[in-house]
């Protein structure tokens, strides 16, 4: 055993490989668990049972769906751009995996600690819109193209309030290092309890919902108008990658909210924030946030496109700008 540990410690390449395998495992497990919970919550809100047939309470359903998806043929439409069509799902999935590397899950559990972690995560997150555009355009299908266009407009509009609201936290801590931001909240007061940062938190949640293309902002998919939007033409595992990336993005969104506003791996009042308990605190906060997003998703109907744009440009962006100004003043004075 000791020899194995020593071996792993010596070969950093092997360590990276191991970490990467764990990471992919976490992303897949997250998609399976969240997919199952999503279906269950949707069912309970509509007062149905949801998946019940395979396994206790239907917990095997998502795994069986995954197997079904794997066994399907990957069809490329006749006039599609083959190279880009194949590339898009990978381009959607890879940034998710890359962001997971930089998330500080606890004091000592993280892939890498970058001193520009926040910028790195946001940069990676915005590749997502690129992949949706490529998927929609290369499918050579008008519905896919519509979905992709909507997605680009939506993401450009909502990236601004996200950045502005996160900038308020950066102004308060004056660092982009995620570990440092979490450490700054190790006292009894998390950033969400400051009034100005609470506003930033709410803005971040709304805009994050739109950024991950989830209902009520799921216009790129809008199944009632665009069949399935940008992934209409995808089948088999390519479609599976889009679905997994969606839940991965949800996880990332929730974990950034946790890190920036809810104290990351800190327990309440700095209670039990060791390396192991920290990870448990972090994951439970992330899960609560994700469940809230699902609750929101199954409550509201999809917004119209003009309503979507109104919300971003007329409400979220002015509010986050004013909020940023107030934060800057407060930081300067105190």
């Amino acid at each position: 055993m000791e020899q194995i540990i020593k071996f792993i410690q010596t070969y950093s390449l092997l360590r990276m490989l191991l970490a990467f395998c764990c990471l992919i495992g976490i992303i897949f497990a997250n998609a399976i668990v969240m997919g199952y919970l999503e279906r269950k919550i949707a069912a309970r809100i509509q007062r149905r049972w949801g998946p019940m047939e395979v396994g206790l309470q239907g917990w095997l359903q998502m795994i069986l769906d995954g197997v079904k998806i794997l066994s399907k043929q990957l069809i490329v439409p006749k006039d599609a751009n083959r190279f880009l069509f194949r590339l898009a799902p990978l381009l959607c999935f890879t940034p998710v995996a890359m962001v997971f590397v930089a998330l500080p899950i606890s004091r000592s559990l993280y892939g890498i600690n970058l001193n520009i972690g926040l910028i790195y995560i946001i940069a990676m997150g915005s590749i997502n819109v690129f992949s949706i555009l490529i998927a929609g355009w290369s499918s050579n299908n008008k519905y896919s193209l519509f979905g992709a266009m909507r997605s680009v407009a939506q993401n450009i509009a909502y990236e601004v309030p996200i950045l502005l609201s996160l900038l308020a936290v950066v102004l308060t801590t004056s660092t982009f290092d995620l570990q440092e931001i979490v450490k700054a909240q190790s006292g009894p007061i998390w950033f969400v309890l400051y009034p100005n940062l609470f506003v930033a938190f709410v803005i971040y949640l709304i805009a994050g919902c739109a950024e991950t293309n989830r209902a009520p902002f799921d216009l790129p998919e809008a199944e009632s108008e665009l069949t399935a939007g940008y992934h209409t033409e995808y089948s088999g595992f390519a479609f599976g990658l889009f679905a997994i990336a969606e839940y991965g993005n949800l996880f990332i969104m929730a974990s950034i909210a946790t890190i920036m506003f809810l104290g990351g791996w800190n327990g309440p009042f700095g209670f039990l924030s060791g390396p192991v308990m920290g990870a448990i605190w972090f994951l439970s906060k992330v899960f609560i946030l994700m469940l809230t997003m699902m609750w929101v998703r199954w409550t509201y109907p999809r917004v119209r496109f003009d309503q979507l744009m109104n919300l971003a440009w007329k409400y979220l962006i002015p509010f986050s700008l004013v909020n940023l100004l107030i934060t800057a003043l407060v930081v300067k004075i105190i």
Partner: peptide, 21 residues
């Protein structure tokens, strides 16, 4: 009204299921 909507779905969530297998 958004908060009221959330309340409605939360109440539906904790109420018993009405469909049968």
């Amino acid at each position: 009204s958004l908060l009221i909507g959330l309340g409605v779905t939360f109440r539906a969530f904790i109420k018993p299921v009405v469909t049968v297998q």
